[in-house]
Amino acid sequence: MLQLTTATAADLPALCRLVNLAYRPGDGQAGWTHESALIRGARTSEAQLATVLAAPGQVLLGWQAGQLVACVHIEPASGYGYIGMLAVDPACQAGGIGKTMLAHAEATLASHYRLPRARMSVLAGRPELRAYYLRRGYLPTGERQAYPLDAGVGQPRDATLDLEMLEKPLVA
Rank of each mutant, 00 (worst) to 15 (best):
H112D: 14
V69E: 01
S111A: 14
A105Y: 04
A118R: 07
I83L: 15
L109F: 04
A124D: 15
A91F: 02
G84L: 10
A110I: 12
L61H: 04
S121G: 14
G66P: 01
L86I: 14
G79C: 05
V88Q: 00
R117K: 14
R119F: 03
E75G: 05
P116T: 03
L86H: 11
A65N: 09
S78W: 09
M120L: 15
C71P: 07
Q58R: 15
D89L: 07
A105I: 05
A110C: 04
A105Q: 08
Y80N: 01
I83Y: 03
M85A: 01
G125M: 07
G98P: 15
A77G: 11
L86T: 11
A110S: 05
Y80W: 09
L102I: 13
G125C: 10
A77D: 13
V122P: 04
G62S: 06
S78A: 15
H112S: 15
E106A: 03
A110F: 05
G79P: 00
A91Y: 02
L61G: 06
Q67G: 02
E106W: 09
P90S: 01
A65V: 11
G81K: 01
A70H: 04
A70C: 11
M85S: 03
P116L: 02
G96P: 05
S111P: 03
H73E: 13
A118S: 11
P76S: 05
A118V: 01
C92Q: 15
R119C: 10
H73L: 08
M120D: 05
E75A: 13
Q58P: 07
A105P: 12
G62T: 04
V69I: 11
K99W: 08
L60A: 09
A105N: 07
H112P: 04
M120V: 03
A65C: 07
L109I: 07
A91S: 14
R119A: 10
I74P: 11
A124L: 12
L60Y: 11
R114T: 12
A105D: 09
A124P: 03
I97V: 14
R117W: 09
A110P: 01
V88G: 00
L61P: 02
V122Y: 05
I83T: 09
Q58F: 08
V59F: 03
G79W: 02
I97L: 04
K99T: 14
D89S: 06
S111K: 15
Q64K: 13
C92P: 06
V72Q: 01
